Amino acid sequence: MPLVQVSLRRGKPAAYHQAIFDRVYRAMRETFNVPEDDRFMAITEHDASTFSVSPTYFGIARSDDAILLQLTVSNTRTREQKQALYRRIVEVLQESPGLRPEDVFINLVEVLPENWSFGHGIAQYVANKS
C-alpha cells in the first residue's frame, strides 16, 4: 500500500533507479510490514532548473545527488515504525546505489484506509467492512 514517489536529478542509469526501487521496498517490508507484491513506485527525473534542494537546511550538507522520497501510507503505523523506516531506508540506500545519508530526504503522507483503490473502482481496505 505505500505509494512511493522518488524525485532526483536527471542522469542516473537504470541500475541506479532499480537499486532505489529494490532497496526502498526492502526497507518497507522490514519495518512497515508491507506485504509481498505491494509495490507501487515511480521515479521522476529533473533537470537542474526544475529540482531544488537546500544544500544546508538543518545543518545537513547535501550534494547534487540528493533525492526526495515521498511515501503515501495508511495512517496505521506507530512513531517507532516510522523512525525505523527512515533509518532503514538510509541504511539500504547507502549500501546500494551508494547514496550518502545526508542526501536522502523522506516525507510520509498519511491517509485513511478508505483513500485507496487498487483497481475496479473499489476501496479494497474498506469494501468488506460495515
Rank of each mutant, 00 (worst) to 15 (best):
residue 1 M to E: 14
residue 3 L to D: 10
residue 3 L to C: 11
residue 3 L to G: 13
residue 4 V to K: 11
residue 4 V to T: 15
residue 4 V to C: 13
residue 5 Q to V: 04
residue 5 Q to S: 09
residue 5 Q to C: 02
residue 6 V to W: 01
residue 7 S to W: 01
residue 8 L to Y: 04
residue 13 P to S: 08
residue 15 A to C: 04
residue 15 A to I: 03
residue 15 A to F: 02
residue 18 Q to D: 14
residue 18 Q to Y: 07
residue 19 A to F: 05
residue 19 A to S: 15
residue 19 A to L: 07
residue 19 A to H: 13
residue 20 I to D: 09
residue 21 F to V: 04
residue 21 F to H: 11
residue 24 V to C: 08
residue 24 V to D: 02
residue 24 V to H: 04
residue 25 Y to T: 04
residue 30 E to T: 02
residue 31 T to H: 06
residue 31 T to E: 05
residue 32 F to I: 11
residue 33 N to P: 01
residue 33 N to G: 14
residue 34 V to K: 13
residue 35 P to F: 13
residue 36 E to I: 03
residue 39 R to G: 09
residue 39 R to I: 10
residue 43 I to P: 03
residue 44 T to Y: 05
residue 44 T to S: 12
residue 45 E to M: 10
residue 47 D to H: 03
residue 49 S to K: 02
residue 52 S to N: 05
residue 54 S to N: 14
residue 55 P to E: 12
residue 56 T to Q: 13
residue 59 G to F: 04
residue 60 I to H: 11
residue 62 R to Q: 12
residue 63 S to R: 10
residue 65 D to W: 06
residue 66 A to L: 08
residue 67 I to R: 07
residue 69 L to M: 07
residue 69 L to A: 02
residue 70 Q to L: 07
residue 71 L to I: 14
residue 71 L to M: 11
residue 75 N to H: 09
residue 76 T to I: 10
residue 77 R to D: 05
residue 79 R to D: 06
residue 80 E to Y: 05
residue 83 Q to A: 13
residue 84 A to F: 07
residue 85 L to M: 10
residue 85 L to N: 03
residue 85 L to T: 02
residue 86 Y to D: 03
residue 88 R to T: 09
residue 90 V to W: 06
residue 96 S to D: 14
residue 97 P to T: 13
residue 98 G to E: 11
residue 99 L to A: 11
residue 100 R to H: 14
residue 100 R to T: 06
residue 103 D to L: 09
residue 105 F to K: 10
residue 106 I to M: 08
residue 106 I to L: 15
residue 107 N to Q: 15
residue 107 N to D: 07
residue 107 N to M: 14
residue 110 E to R: 09
residue 111 V to W: 01
residue 115 N to E: 13
residue 117 S to W: 00
residue 119 G to F: 01
residue 120 H to L: 12
residue 122 I to S: 01
residue 122 I to N: 01
residue 122 I to V: 14
residue 123 A to K: 03
residue 124 Q to S: 06
residue 124 Q to C: 03
residue 125 Y to V: 00
residue 126 V to W: 00
residue 127 A to R: 08
residue 127 A to D: 05
residue 129 K to F: 00
residue 129 K to W: 00
residue 130 S to F: 00
